[in-house]
Every structure is written in C-alpha cells, then in structure tokens.
C-alpha cells in the first residue's frame, strides 16, 4: 500500500502521471485551503480592528510626542 499510488520505481516514466499522496481527494484538499485562506483574512481583520480601537483609546500624549520626534 502506498499513498502516492506507486510502491516501487520499477516503472516506465512514460506511464507515470500524478505522484502525490491521496489522489482523488483534490477537491476536499482545495476546500481546506480556501477555508484556511478566508479564515486568515477574517481573523486578521478582526484582530486588527480590536487592536486599533484599544490603541486609539489608550493614546498617551507623551508617547505620541516622543514618536513624532523620531520621524
């Protein structure tokens, strides 16, 4: 048994095509990838918004003045 469909390389390369694991499961694998991508955007945007709100509220005039001097 082999996840890539070949148990040895005693083959004619002219007959070899796909050689990745779990052939036939391409669509589910892509769905997992899309969920990961969209989930990343949503999660990052939420974190960013919460963080900016917090920073804007906690704004310390002394620190702001110091940052302005730094260019």
């Amino acid at each position: 048994m082999s996840t890539i469909g070949y148990e040895s390389w005693a083959v004619d390369m002219a007959d070899v095509g796909a050689m990745y694991p779990f052939q036939g499961a391409e669509v589910p694998m892509v769905i997992i990838g899309v969920v990961f991508w969209l989930g990343w955007h949503i999660s990052q945007a939420r974190r960013e918004t919460a963080h900016f709100e917090e920073v804007a509220k906690m704004s310390d005039p002394e620190k702001v003045a110091k940052m302005l001097e730094r260019y």
Binding site: A45, E48, T49, H51, F52, V55, A56, S59, K63, V64, M67, L68, R70
Partner: peptide, 18 residues
C-alpha cells in the same frame, strides 16, 4: 470604516500601535 487607520495611530506610528 475598514480602509484607513485611526488618526491617533497614524500620529503615533504604526510600529508603536501594531
């Protein structure tokens, strides 16, 4: 309201904020 950073953050600089 998701395009631009708040002005307080812009003044402080994003490295301090984020």
């Amino acid at each position: 309201g998701t395009l631009r950073i708040p002005p307080e953050v812009e003044l402080q600089g994003l490295d301090f904020a984020e």
